[in-house]
Design a protein around this nucleic acid. Structure first.
Lengths: 198, 198
DNA sequence: CCGCAATTAGACCAAGTGGTCTATTCGTCA
DNA sequence: TGACGAATAGACCACTTGGTCTAATTGCGG
């Protein structure tokens, strides 16, 4: 609510709404954020919302989650691209995530979960969440292969990383501390190529 | 909403309310469940709610989360008590949890997270979540020590198990499948006492 | 059986919800 | 410039929310 002075304004209305929704959903969950609040934060009228998202809030939630997921995808790539080993990439990713978590006052959780896991018992929400998560796992799998890990093993490592990430994130929220997130790399043990770590 | 015919009725009103709230919160989150629905499920009037929980919904949420957490504590104990090794206990716990997940139609997530992690930006909620989670970790730590793990290592193992649990649960929800939960023991790798697994 | 607190019962309320609809303004191409 | 669709603007609606309050009922100790 403070770092938008030069960024949000020139942004098209639709994107402003998506960003506002994604941010608010991430910190308080889909159900406890009202359209009024989203619109206020995005400085857009209701008409615009229903023009860009004919199906209303649920429509917007899908878009917001997808946008947030894209951000995570970029974060993963940015972490592994310059790394010298898979484990190095994991470490960078964990630290970047910890920093983001601290920026949210140790409050926000996984944006996809917060957006798609409460609300109504909507199977479309679940399906999208699965799709987005799978996207993260695929990206990590690809990165793992870049570092020479074989197919079944790479995928397993990616899945484990995802699980550790989500779990650590949860614990970090409860503790109000990013320490668990930063310590994540230590937990991945010998998942790296045998004997390749450190 | 079907297995209460002989269990709920003789239960005191307060407990009926807590159980109903815990169940509903677990499956749809704190914010998206209204008092009306809870009261209907618990077959109790509003007056009773505010008699037993003067602070209303938030008060009830704390109680519901605590009750759910107690259940998990029992589940942990029941899994490790008869086990022959730490890893065996982990396996049993993972399977029990998977079964519960399946009973909820592959829908419900961690009851504590669902109840205390959305709603208002209430620090009391976070504090309670941290307390309850720490309770789980302490219980597992204790169990790990029973199997001969040393103090720093036992605690680390317990934390890792917690993280894997929460993460796997999240992925299981997205996939609508308990498989990830059941596969959890495979991921704990060599956290067991060195060379003791399998 | 009485009396008194604990509990149950539910009408009621202000505030907020997501959603709809009509009117207006904006941007662009002829 | 005129015109036409895209986009913005916000009044409005039915409904639900969490919460309050008074009245009735229940259960138990004397």
């Amino acid at each position: 609510m403070s770092r938008r002075d030069m960024t949000d304004r020139p942004l098209p209305t639709k994107d402003r709404i998506i960003r506002a929704a994604a941010t608010l959903f991430a910190s308080r969950g889909y159900a406890s954020v009202g359209l009024a609040e989203i619109l206020a934060e995005a400085k857009a009228p209701k008409g615009s919302l229903y023009h860009h998202f004919p199906d209303g809030k649920s429509d917007l939630a899908l878009a917001a989650a997808t946008w947030a997921s894209d951000g995570m995808l970029k974060l993963i790539a940015a972490s592994f691209e310059p790394a010298e080993s898979f484990h190095g990439g994991v470490t960078t990713l964990a630290h970047k995530l910890a920093k983001l978590f601290d920026l949210s006052d140790q409050w926000d959780g996984c944006p996809v979960s917060a957006t798609l896991f409460d609300g109504p018992p909507d199977t479309a929400f679940r399906a999208r969440a699965n799709h987005l998560f799978q996207g993260w796992i695929n990206e990590v799998t690809w990165q793992a292969e870049r570092f020479g890990m074989a197919e079944p093993r790479a995928r397993e490592a990616a899945e484990t990383l995802f699980i550790l990430l989500e779990g650590s994130w949860q614990l970090a929220r409860a503790r109000g501390s990013s320490d668990v997130l930063r310590a994540l790399p230590n937990r991945i043990g010998d998942l790296d190529a045998p004997g390749a770590r450190t």
